[in-house]
Amino acid sequence: MLGFKAFRCARILLSGIEVMHMIAKGQMIDGAVPKRSVAEQFYFLAM
């Protein structure tokens, strides 16, 4: 890997990876009815 071009890009990418891990572990409980899928939770957080 060549590395990141800017600190901002690295921060955004690593934050996304952390969020995906949290969702996969079930640590992101949003209280939505009906329950959202992993993809829907990620999309909701990204907006």
Rank of each mutant, 00 (worst) to 15 (best):
M28I: 14
H21T: 12
Q41R: 13
K5H: 07
K5F: 06
F7T: 12
S15D: 04
F7M: 15
I23N: 00
L2P: 10
S37A: 04
Y43E: 14
L13Y: 13
Q27W: 07
I12K: 07
D30L: 10
R8A: 15
A32H: 10
L14H: 08
A24E: 06
M28R: 08
G16P: 02
K35N: 10
F4Q: 00
F7S: 11
E18S: 14
R8Q: 08
V33D: 14
A6C: 05
M20T: 11
C9N: 13
A10H: 04
E18M: 12
Q27H: 13
L2K: 08
A39P: 04
E40V: 02
L14F: 08
I12C: 03
M22G: 14
H21R: 12
A39R: 10
L13R: 11
L2I: 07
D30I: 10
Q41M: 15
L13N: 10
G31H: 03
Q41T: 15
E40M: 03
M47A: 14
R36C: 03
M22F: 06
R36K: 11
L45D: 14
M1T: 10
A24N: 08
Q27G: 03
F42K: 06
I12M: 05
G26T: 00
G3Y: 00
V33A: 07
A24F: 02
F4K: 00
L14P: 01
Q27K: 09
K35T: 15
V33W: 09
